[in-house]
Amino acid sequence: MDKPRILIIIPAHNEAASLAGVIREIRSAVEADIVVVNDHSTDDTAAVALRENVELLSLPFNVGIGGTMQTGFKFACREGYEVAVQVDGDGQHDPSELPVILGPVLAGEYDLVVGSRYLEPGNYKGAAGRRVGTAIFSRLLSLMTREHVTDGTSGFRAIDRELIEIFARDYPRDYPEVEAILLAHKARKRIMEAPVHMRQRGGGRSSINTFRSVYYMVKVLLALMVVATRKRAQGSQ
């Protein structure tokens, strides 16, 4: 059989400063097609993507990270890719670690591999508030999925063909990372975490501030509750 076709999806909102570097790093790390999903950037993100000669999907207005990723999943679904990987455009995810994320999916051992910064000591762990939030979600996720989840909010992840199809149909709108793991669990997919290092952002601004993080917490908790009850309802049928 041929080598499975891999699509690297880079969601980008005003990441012109770091995007070219990320693309080049990906190219030197793995053999894969790259699509930049431009979430209505006001800077040169689209121009950078075209100059680097990667696929470009430009959204006509801001749809948030969930809608942006789903645009990529739909593209992967239509173009027949077997594996899709999310790599953020801000340089936070280290493309040289792509093989770590990709390996288990390519080997057919797991369907969703999430890069976790907490599996190895001594990593960049992010701000304290973020750490607490991540810990809470990860505990909750571990309880609900009975899997060992340490970094449920990580966006650095690889999925198989079936999950591409599932996410192309239905993907959470904003702050989708935690909910997506639960959706994958609901679809009875095999989930694992792989140790990665997160870097300081190469450019751009983090979308998280105090008010937003409170909103984040409440929104994700609510979403988890909704998905959990939906699951039970389906199980009893």
Binding site: P60, F61, V63, G67
Partner: peptide, 17 residues
């Protein structure tokens, strides 16, 4: 619905290019 339209538009825009 508007998100779905935006995604479709991005896709068609790319195809046209």
């Amino acid at each position: 619905q508007s998100t779905m339209l935006a995604q479709k538009l991005a896709q068609l825009d790319r195809d046209l290019r």
